[in-house]
Structures are given as C-alpha cells and as structure tokens.
Simulated assay, not measured.
Amino acid sequence: MPKPLILIMAAILSSDPALAGESHHEHIHSPPYAGEQTREIKALSKEDIDELLRGGGWGLAKSAELNGMPGPTHVLDMAAELDLSAEQIERTRKMRNAMRREAKQIGERVVVKEAELESRFRVGDIVEAELMARVSEIEALRAKLRTAHLLAHIEMARVLSADQIERYAVLRGYR
C-alpha cells in the first residue's frame, strides 16, 4: 500500500474511534423525530395540517416565488407598496380566492388520506400493494396541490408590470 494512502487511513481512523473499532457502550442517540410519535398523523405536524386545511401555500410554490413570479396572497398584502390599480387588486383577489378554494379542497383530501395511511400503520398489517396505492394517491394529490399554487404564481406574473414584479422582489428581500 502506498505511503500517502496509509497516512490518510491512519488519520481517518485516529479521528473517529468508531472506524478504528473502539466500542462505546454509552452511545446516546438524539433521534430527529423524538416527540413526533404523539402526533395524530405522524407524517404531518399540526402546522402542516392547519396550512393544508386553510388552503395555504405550504412552501409549494418556491420555484415560482424565488424566480420572479409573485404569489397573489403576498401581492395583496403589499398592494399599496406595489401601487396596484383597482383592476389589479380585483383580478388578484379573484385569483387568490379561486386558488385557495382549490387548495383547501385538495389539502383536506391530503389530510384525510394521510390519516387513513396512518391508521393502516397503526393496525400494523399494511401490505406492499396497498402501501403503494395509498402513497401514489397521496402524492398525486400533493402534485395537484403544488400545481394549483404554481399556476396562481404564473397568472399573477401576467397581472403585474415588470416594475411591480421587481419592486415585489425587493420588498420580499430577494434582491
């Protein structure tokens, strides 16, 4: 074995006793999910559920938001700073309300389907075919939810002027 390789291996083994074969009996693990076992639906926090049930964004439109396509909810929050016209405000309100209705309906279904999956794991007899079907259904709903939010951002970019979009980016701290 070449000398440089031996030196590298020695350095690695001396820096990590586990790699060198040393045994540590008092290993304390800090599991990242500690405390989450008490959730009603383990895969969703209370905040996740609240966001889904109210039709909130749940961070699903970041690819649009962070690439210059504002969201209707934030645009309405900044209507004065963006100097929106009455027509822009009306179009944005309609767009936001339609998106929220759709997102709320889909979000409710996501929560129900996650609860059903949770209950199957509680029983403990879920089989692979059922698991695949349930997860596919949940992920299809998530895709619809994300699409609803992203489409609202695309539509919003058509309502605002280039100057308003730039001002939005500055106000949101992206520029």
Rank of each mutant, 00 (worst) to 15 (best):
L141F: 00
A129R: 03
P32G: 07
S119P: 00
G68P: 09
L160A: 01
M69H: 14
E108R: 15
E128A: 10
E108F: 03
A34N: 07
I6N: 05
A143Y: 10
R172I: 05
K113A: 14
A152P: 00
R109S: 14
S161C: 06
E51Y: 11
T38S: 13
D48S: 08
A157R: 14
M99H: 02
R93M: 04
V159E: 09
R100S: 03
Q164Y: 04
R134C: 05
P4R: 01
R146T: 00
E137K: 08
V112E: 14
L13Y: 13
P31L: 09
L151T: 09
A129H: 01
A86K: 06
L82R: 00
V135E: 07
Y168S: 03
S63M: 13
T92Y: 02
E102M: 09
S23Y: 08
R142H: 07
L5I: 15
M132A: 10
E118P: 04
I6L: 05
A43I: 04
E116C: 02
A103K: 08
M1H: 11
H27T: 14
E90Q: 15
A18T: 04
E128D: 14
L60K: 11
R172M: 14
A20R: 02
V123C: 09
K46N: 13
V75G: 01
D163K: 08
V135W: 10
M9Y: 08
A148P: 05
